[in-house]
Nucleic acid binder design. Sequence first.
DNA 1: ACCTGAACACCGTTCAAGT
DNA 2: ACCTGAACACCGTTCAAGT
Lengths: 208, 208
Amino acid sequence: MARPSSPLITREAIAEAAIGLIDRAGDFSMPKLAGALGVRQSSLYNHVNGREGVIELVRTRCIEDLVVPNYRELPWREALRALIQAYWRSLAAHPNLVPLLIRQTVSSEVVIDYYARIIEVLLRAGLGEERAVHMLSVIDDFVLGAALDVGSPEVAWSINAERYPRFARALQLMPNREARASDAFGFGLDLILDGLARHLPAPSERTH
Amino acid sequence: MARPSSPLITREAIAEAAIGLIDRAGDFSMPKLAGALGVRQSSLYNHVNGREGVIELVRTRCIEDLVVPNYRELPWREALRALIQAYWRSLAAHPNLVPLLIRQTVSSEVVIDYYARIIEVLLRAGLGEERAVHMLSVIDDFVLGAALDVGSPEVAWSINAERYPRFARALQLMPNREARASDAFGFGLDLILDGLARHLPAPSERTH
DNA sequence: ACCTGAACACCGTTCAAGT
DNA sequence: ACCTGAACACCGTTCAAGT
């Protein structure tokens, strides 16, 4: 076959196929990715910088949807909530992807942009610069952990009900993993926002 | 050689060697693990249930140090803080390990034990059973995320200082990644505890 | 420029053979 | 019970050859 008159694959097609594999199978490999695109393994290297390149492609593709239009007009608490929720949603939509993302440095402009917006809101809320960066880390940590939780294997907490009666009973109450992860995220977000509100020196802003 | 009169390797030795490889190189493989133990690859399968088995071994080994002796006598807030800090410390001591741990279900008895203790303290603090399980998830999410942060690659936040002047300046203030991750963990822990205290219905417990 | 086939070094797992 | 060597199926990457 050699070189076709028009390329058989594109970077977009690669990203899409990779996400498909990851969503369905939890991971991807170069042979499988090539197979899904109807092409030979080595062809991929004409479009993408190896396996890591594929992952970077997938990252930007997934974070592109991270748009929060009106956060500037909202009071800090609502703005922060909206930003954080948007971040979590874009990750939680592809939970299997998170374990792949965390092993590589973030270089995407979109993500830097997002972080800058968070910092902006935190400073507006009255946080000092150092505290703002700490808070950014806390948010990042929590969102990443919560997104991981969505995709973590259905917990075979084979709890010994006799040794841990209350723990076993509490677990009984929970619905499936995904719903629990989602509820926990909402709860944790409220806690963090409450904690932050309490931490702020003086209520320099009040809305209703 | 065949079977030696006394085994050449033990599960303990395997765990130790694996941790060594992970700490030094960020990962391990069965051949390298065998090499470090002076033994052939296939010998490992006499002691351990494949690669996943090694990871489980390493997990329990790392969490064994997770001992918080006197949490029962402490007021709920201090007990919770001590338990969470101990968990984080045991993970943060081997940051490269965390990405390997998160991909497998927890089956270790030690971890279940730890979770049960957290639940116990949360119920004692006055949280409902459902909320307690949510809170357990929040704690798990945050600790995992924060532990990941410790080992994540030194952030090449090549921030455009003209586009994001305040973000760039705030980042300037930060020390190295490890110190930032640690400070952020402490700050986030306080926020979560504050938020939880605020969330509790009635102060059923007060100590000084 | 872009696809191919062959080649290389690496990986996880199994299993009969040996004591 | 426990180590070995050989075998298998899989992986990521490179590169000369072809158009």
